[in-house]
Design a protein around this nucleic acid. Structure first.
Lengths: 165, 165
DNA sequence: TTGTTTGTGTTATAACATAACATGAATATA
DNA sequence: TATATTCATGTTATGTTATAACACAAACAA
């Protein structure tokens, strides 16, 4: 994973994250002959509004506001497409979706989730993957997909809890 | 994690798993002054029927058959208790529950989940934890809880797919 | 321009989980 | 033993997340 991920820095220019994500998505869709339709682009943008994973139903009002149909299948279909393209990830422990900061190449996703500010930051899972591979190999298990979700406190929130106490 | 876990061996004496789990649970509850009520014990037994995680709603008919109330809260309460005691784990990616093979001491749980036979086997997450700790420390994240779920093919099913092809 | 694929609208429902309050059983305390 | 208290369960209702199924329309390919 590249280190362009702003991670838990609270002061990064998030508009840049969004713009970058949309640009990359458009570019990749062109390359892959996939259609980034208005609904899909809007959902991607909404998911990127911040680093806090959003539930599918939280997206519906915004879809309605934009004049689209806003029944659940609409948003789930868009999310499914975006996941297939690697533009967003689903966080199983939260039933929520978050933008992927580096959709340009396939990768295993892992997340650090702050239970205080609710941000989820993708982490470098290469070392974790090596450990998992070794464990799996021991028992002869063939890995196809890895889900790593770590819950805890991000640096910002640790500090806030410290000063607050 | 001890290596008494039968893992993906299809020919282990599973009744032994069940008996052992129930005995350990009773013992631990006695030590901890917790009440392993009939409902809780039944749910634990049901979850242990095999190594395939069961959904909460799949337990309801068996509860009804045993003469208990079988509304969702009943089973969710039992599952909550069993999770608190460390007797069962929840698999977030499956919305399902599975017995813990070594509830005697607290531990981080990780699972290898076979998408063919649906069995979920707990794995030794110590190496994974070390990798995660290192990654988390780099960004100053304080870990409180780890969720590791690996999907793939177990040895048995790899063989079956090979012979079938 | 015709057929085919792909995306969307729409209705309904499935699957998973919890809130809230009443009742009863077990335990602790007087 | 009586009484208070805590804990577990029964019960009804509802909240939350996700998908099935089919109709229609837009894009694309031949």
């Amino acid at each position: 994973m590249t280190q362009t991920d702003p991670g838990f820095h609270s002061d990064h220019d998030h508009q840049h994250c969004i713009d970058q994500a949309l640009l990359t998505a458009r570019d990749l869709c062109r390359q892959r002959r996939q259609r980034l339709t208005p609904i899909r682009e809007l959902v991607l943008k909404l998911v990127w509004q911040n680093h806090q994973p959003l539930g599918a139903y939280e997206l519906l009002p915004a879809l309605a506001a934009a004049g689209f149909n806003s029944a659940p299948p609409t948003v789930y279909r868009a999310l499914e497409f975006l996941q297939q393209q690697g533009f967003v990830h689903r966080i199983a422990s939260l039933n929520a979706y978050v933008g992927c900061p580096h959709p340009d190449r396939p990768h295993r996703s892992g997340f650090l989730i702050c239970h205080r500010c609710k941000r989820a930051i993708e982490l470098d899972t290469a070392p974790v993957h090596r450990a998992l591979s070794a464990s799996a190999e021991e028992v002869g298990f063939r890995i196809e997909q890895e889900l790593v979700e770590v819950v805890g406190l991000c640096p910002d929130c640790q500090q806030q809890e410290a000063t607050h106490a």
